[in-house]
Simulated scan of single mutants.
Amino acid sequence: MFEKIPPNVMIIATTIMAIGMGIVVTTLRAKAAKHPASVKKILLPPVFMSTGAVMFVFPFFRVTGAQFLEAIGVGILFSVVLIWTSKFERKDGNIYLKQSKAFVFILIGLLIIRVIGKIVLSSTIDVGALSGMFWILAFGMIVPWRIAMYLQFKKIQKEVTE
Rank of each mutant, 00 (worst) to 15 (best):
L121A: 13
I72G: 06
G22W: 03
A138H: 07
I119C: 07
S38W: 06
F60C: 01
A129T: 09
V120Q: 03
Q67N: 00
I72T: 13
I76Y: 05
K118A: 06
I16H: 06
A53W: 11
W145S: 02
M49W: 05
W84F: 06
H35Y: 12
M17H: 05
V127K: 08
A32I: 03
I11T: 10
M149Q: 10
I112P: 01
I16G: 09
V104G: 03
T27M: 12
A30S: 13
M141H: 04
R90P: 05
T15A: 10
K31R: 13
W135I: 12
L28S: 09
M10S: 14
G132V: 07
V80W: 01
R90I: 11
S123A: 15
Y150P: 00
W84N: 12
A66Q: 11
K34C: 06
L151K: 12
N94E: 14
F58M: 15
I113V: 13
L111W: 02
F105A: 01
V57G: 09
V25W: 07
A102E: 04
I156V: 14
K154A: 06
V120C: 02
D126R: 11
W135R: 12
V24R: 07
E70S: 08
P36K: 08
S123K: 15
L69V: 01
I5N: 06
F68I: 01
S122N: 13
E162Y: 12
L77F: 10
I11R: 01
I112N: 01
I12H: 08
E159N: 07
